[in-house]
């Protein structure tokens, strides 16, 4: 399974593509894509968001599901989703704002 992630242009915040093509800033709200076709279509949505000055640097990443919700496969993406492991006070789930 894949989700699409990027940074919001204005403030640089990490975001994921969620329902209704909104960019959400909690991984738990991200929409999951199964298969190549769905991922390609989602990346096209992302490309449009880049063109619309909403986000920068979109890419897809692998995730799995467990009882906690969506879990990125790579450590890098887990840290990116949660915030620096060294600064628990900046953990990402603290605020939930949509683009």
């Amino acid at each position: 399974m894949k989700v699409i992630t990027a940074n919001r242009l204005l403030d640089g915040e990490v975001v994921w593509l969620g329902a209704e093509d909104l960019w959400v800033d909690a991984l738990i709200e991200a929409k999951m894509f199964d298969g190549k076709e769905a991922t390609t279509a989602a990346l096209a949505v992302a490309a449009q968001a880049v063109a619309d000055q909403k986000i920068v640097g979109p890419y897809d990443m692998d995730v799995t599901i467990d009882e906690d919700g969506i879990v990125p496969v790579r450590l890098r993406e887990r840290i990116r989703a949660a915030g620096p492991t060294t600064h628990p006070q900046f953990r990402k789930q603290a605020a939930s704002v949509r683009v």
Binding site: N7, G12, E13, I79, K92
Partner: peptide, 12 residues
């Protein structure tokens, strides 16, 4: 970048 502004893992 010429002005030291990167995009990093979490933010600029």
């Amino acid at each position: 970048l010429m002005n030291g502004l990167y995009l990093q893992l979490h933010a600029y």
